[in-house]
Every structure is written in C-alpha cells, then in structure tokens.
Design a protein around this nucleic acid. Structure first.
Lengths: 202, 202, 202, 202
DNA sequence: TCATAAGCGAGACGGTACGTCCCGTCTTTAT
DNA sequence: ATAAAGACGGGACGTACCGTCTCGCTTATGA
C-alpha cells in the first residue's frame, strides 16, 4: 500500500540521527517552535534535508524524538523512580508535584515541551504519541501510588485513580499551558491539600 | 513613535471585517489551523491581503476576533448567564461542567478553540489575549459562585476560589487539550463529586 | 484551459525584467549553460525566483529573451543592414559569411548562442522560437540578395534561394556546432567560391 | 597520477554493461534526454549506480556508448559499405544523401542522436568524441568517393574534399538540428544537384 | 461641490521554506 | 574485486505564502 518503500533502518547513520536531534533541541531553544525549520535543523546538524525526511514525517516528530531522548538521558542519570511511599500520602504527593513544577519551570524543559504539547493540541496523531510516550508513564506513577494509598486507607476506596490523579495534574497543566497564574512550590502544596480534602467543608 | 500612522478605524469597511472573520472560521474548519493562510482567508473573503494586514497582526489574531465574535453572538442569543445558585452547590456545578463538556465536544467550537489554545501555548502575547478575552470571563463565573457557596457554608471557608475552580476546570482542560481520556457527562459528574469531597477518605 | 490565470503584463516590473536578462547573460558566460541555474539568476538579479517563473517557463526561455535583447541592442547600434549589392555576388557573399564567422567566433556571442541552439535541438518549442526570432531574419537577408542576383543574371534562374542559402549557411553551422574544423576567413572565402561554382568541373 | 586506481576492465560484468546501454537507449526514447537520469538507468538496468559511475563519467558518455553499439550492430547486419562508385557521381551521392535523410528521419535514430549532438554542442569533450567516433567515419566515406571522382574527372581537381563534403552534409545537418525545413528525398536530390553545379549560372 | 485622501480589491514583488529529485560518494553484504 | 542496493551530504527544482509595495477605483468628507 505504501508508495515509498520504507528505508532500511539497519543502515541508518547513528551519527546523523544524533546530530539531527541535538540540532533540533538547540534550535527550538534559540528561535522557538514556530520558526523552527527543517532546513535549519539539517544545516545545523550537517545533514542533508532528505535524511531528515527519510526518517521523520515532520519537524514535530523530530522534536518529539529529541525530547524523548532528553528524557531517557535524564532518567538514566537520575534512575527513574516511583513516587515514594512513606505512608504519608500528602507529603509524598507534595514532593512529586513540586518536582513537576520545577521541571515545567526550567527553560530547557519548558520550551520543547510546550512546542510538542501545542502541536499535539492541533495534530491528533502527534498528540497521541506525545501522550503515550512522554506523559502516560508519569501518570502511571500516580496510579500506582494512589492504589497503594487506597489499600492503606489513605484514599477513598471507591475512587478511580485516573480521576484522582487528574485533580492534581489537571490544574498544574492548566496553569502551565494557559499561563493563567504562576506555578510555584506554594501552589503545589495548596493544590495537593485542596485535592486531598476537597472543596466542600469537612 | 509608531512607524506607520495607524489606520483610521472610522473609515474601516464593516463588510470586509465581517467577511474576513467568517472566511477565517470557515477555513479553519476545512483545512485546520496549521494550513490556514492569510492568502486563503483574503481570497475566500474577497478582500485584499493588505486589508487584513492593516487590521490584524497575524492569522491567530484574526481567528481570535472571529472566535470572540462567535462567542458574543452565542451570548447574545442565549443571554450569558451566571452559574445558577439553587443552594445545592454540587448540582449547580454539575450543570456548568456538563455544559462546558458539551461545548468542548461540539466541532464548531472545538476546532477554532484548539487552534487558539495551541497558538497561545507557544505565543505568550496571543495566549494572554486568549485567556483575558475568552477564558477569564468564564472563570469569574466560578469565582462568584464559589464565594457565594463559602458564604452559605457549602464550601470550606479558607479556600482560594481560584484554586478551587482549577480543581474543576484543570482536569477538563487536561482531557480536552491532551486527549488522554474522553469527555462525557458521566465524567463531569464524577469530577465535580471528587473535587468537592477530595481524594482522602471522609 | 490554463490552470494559472496569466499574470498582468501591465504591472510587470521593467527593472526586474532587465536585471534578470542581464544576470542570465552574465552567468551563462561564467559557468556555462548546463550549470546555469534559475536560482543563481534570481540571486544575481536581486529578484525573487517566483518572478522569473511568473514570466518565463524555463531557463532556456530566459536566455532566449536575453540573447534576443542583445541582438536588438546590437542591431540598434549598427543599424541592421541588408547584404550589400555591389553587383559582385561573390564579393558580397564573402563579406557576410566572413562577418558571420566573426560573430560565431566571438565568445560573448558564442556561449549563449550555442546554449540556445543545443537546447533547441532537444526541445522543439524552444527550437522553433530560436529559429523564428533569431535565425530566420538573417536567412531572409540571403533570400533577398540571392533573388536580386537571379534577376541580375548572377545566379542560376531556377534555383530555390532557400536551398542556395543553405549551401552557405549549412557548412558554417556544421563547423560551428559540431566543431569538426575551425572557422576562419579563409574558409569563408573558399566556401563561397565552392558554393558558387559547384563541385563538378566547370 | 590518477586518484582512483582504474577499475580492472578484465573483471567487468558484460551483463551489466549491456543492460546499462539498453536501459539508456530505452529511457532516452521514453522521457527525452534532459529528463534522462543515471538513477533511472541504473534502476531500469537492475544495476547499482556505482557500477555506472565506475565505467562512465556522465550520462552523455553512457548514451554515446549505447548509440555507438546501436550503430555497430546496424553495420554488422547491413555490412557497412563504401559509397558506391558507379561512375555517375550525382547518382551515387543522391543515394547516400537519401539514406542519410532516412536515418535522420527515423525516430529510433533521431532521439539519441539529437541528444548527443545537443550535448556535444555545449560540452566540447563529449562533442569531440561524438564527432570522432560517430561522425568522422561517415565523412571519410565522402572523402574517398570524392577523391575517386576527382581522379575520374567528375569533380573539380583542386577542390578540398572536406569543403566539398560539407556542401552536402552541412545543409542536411542544418535542417535536421535546427528544424528550419523538412528533410525529404526530394530535398536530397535538389541538394546534390545544387552542390554539384553551384549557385552561379553555368 | 468637488478635490483629495483614505480604505479597498487586486496582485506583482523580494524573499524563505517547503518537500522532492537527482547528483556523485560511500558503506554494507553477497557472489 | 566487482556488483546490487541504497543511505548519505548536498544543490536545485518548482510551489506556496509571507509581508510589503504599488496600482486604479470607490467613497465620504471638509475646504
């Protein structure tokens, strides 16, 4: 069915792949996503344009791979870890939410992540890949911690962990993407408290 | 200071303005935001390109005006209303959240709204305008209803209404923009319940 | 029938037209026809590529116009003249044939003329235009001089002047295009003599 | 001196050589010379690109070999012959010139020959090879026949046979390459007569 | 009241980037 | 070592739009 016979991945140049991803990350930081150009990536990477088109369908896909590589590298260094379970759910959640705020606040993460999120908003295929490769793994950490909390009696037993997790992650994302109000550790703490105890009076 | 003497808004052609906004909305529905071009808008509207550049700085700004006009029209028809206050906070919130879900689910609203949100994610100026003109008024409705609830003893008294409102709006936005899971009335109800009573056991 | 509506020739920029033709002539002299590039012409002329594509279908067409302009300019300076009629056909023909040899020998004429001739050999449309605009007018000079010669009894009366003229022009072109043997005044003279008196013994 | 050690012609694959030449001839007929590409030749021939680059410097060189092979094959079939010498120079010349016209008129010969001629016009190295390998042998046939005619008193004794031959071959080439007027047997006859007896009255 | 200057439609212009084709080189695997 | 295969860096293609710039035309005052 495909028009073009797929390229032979076995012969792919690792050197070109890495140079392309690096160049993409650098450039998106320098000129921003809308002005990011495949031509510029190719030039910066010392790579032919065709080589990029051979392996990626769009600049968004390049950036997604680049950003994923960044994440894997960070994970390899830090040792991707579960959310801690000290028995104190509130304290444990404040820790992760604060860490998320820090991440979303650091420019080296912020710029490409925004770019990918924005592209995903408007491009469902890329959005799906963005979510499944980058977002979903983090969400699963919440699912596991919340389930443990339920078993330990620290969370309402009938709650769907997906819904519960969105109570924490949704507001953070909202502030981050829409820039309605600033992200801070103080906000992280308040958010966790409010999500745990609810809007209604006790 | 200005290089260009500002155009005389008094002589502006109303006919061209409307045609441009209509064309922009139509086209964004047909080809999607990334393929929306000012040339195509001008051609469809039967308007000179310069006329568009005279009054708007970018295609995003055109679309923002077009979308705002759509909203005003809807408001004029429906009579933009406060969130009802029946005394039952949970019921009142379910009503609005379900309505929001319906809106975000209808294609005529979804396509341009996503486009503007996506652009705003990556372009702070436009994002700020999007928020202040389109989002903030809706959020203020929540602020007022929640304050009333606090006075009536239906909401925890020390809560910041902004934080409370994000507990509802954040998860909805999260599902809408990132398409992690579907939006539905059932979800709206569960969300309101969870936000009201919190994750922790009663 | 045409896909693209024709551009409005009335609004054409004379400045761009001239700059394009000049750049084409310069470049063909510098890099040769096969390495002549529309991109390079545009860059040298300070003109957008689209402007060239708007008015010409190919680099060959640009060069044809450029070369024709060169010819008109030369004609305007020199006063395009008939072949002289001194009553001595042989002498008159030697004059023109020598002049033709000089022209074909000078690099400023040779390079673009070869390029156009070569392109015309392989591209019938361009070839037809090359012949009708650049070659045919010169051939008509021969036709008129030969007819006069026939009336004066200096040429066989039943001869088709087209055939006669090709006896002179054909061999010159042959040496020029195929580079079998060098062109020189001596050859011009011999050629005229042989063509006049024939191969057969008197 | 050579940068690259010359390939070992002894190990050359005859199969690849033939397939390449065949593919080149086929393709030039199908898409024309300007759109003929080495990649397409290689693909059609089922040959690696490198194999072509190893043995030929350019697509023109491939085509030249292909066309030469065509000629040798025709010669082998027909028995390449001298111009006949029946004692009647005019009749003998009409025969060859008519044959030449037929050849230049047949598409299977015309397309590649034009392509090579055109390339040679603009590329002196290839032109020289085209002339020496393909054209010159034919011209020598004329030289020999004309010398015989001079010895037999059928041609003016002091004539340079090269000049005489160009009187016949030049006009034919002119019409063929420049397409000024059609080639036909009638024209062949008129041309021979005019060349033999000259333009001047007897 | 009518010239005169603005906005307007149209679209040519100098540019930038697109995504594709092909160049000529290089590398891998198989014969 | 040659060959088929095809990835590679590179350059040009012809196209689509960008944002700016005239062009006439119309309209709507304000001298």
């Amino acid at each position: 069915m495909a028009h073009k016979t797929a390229p032979d991945a076995g012969r792919r140049s690792e050197r070109s792949r890495r140079a392309t991803l690096e160049a993409a990350l650098e450039l998106v930081g320098e000129v921003g996503y809308p002005k990011l150009t495949i031509e510029a990536i190719a030039a910066r990477a010392g790579v032919g344009k065709q080589t990029i088109y051979r392996w990626w369908p769009s600049k968004a896909a390049v950036l997604l791979d680049a950003f994923a590589a960044l994440g894997e590298q960070a994970a390899a260094e830090a040792g991707e870890s579960e959310i801690p379970d000290t028995g104190d759910l509130e304290a444990d959640l404040k820790l992760v939410v604060r860490a998320t705020v820090d991440e979303l606040t650091s420019p080296r993460y912020d710029v490409p992540a925004r770019a990918l999120a924005a592209e995903g908003v408007v491009n469902p295929e890329l959005g799906a890949e963005f979510v499944s490769r980058l977002l979903e793994p983090s969400l699963q950490l919440y699912v596991r911690r919340l389930r443990a909390a339920q078993e330990a009696g620290q969370a309402a037993p009938h709650l769907d962990p997906r819904v519960a997790l969105e109570l924490l992650v949704g507001p953070i994302t909202h502030r981050w993407l829409l820039r309605t109000l600033p992200l801070s550790h103080a906000y992280a703490d308040t958010l966790v408290e409010t999500a745990l105890h609810g809007i209604a009076p006790r």
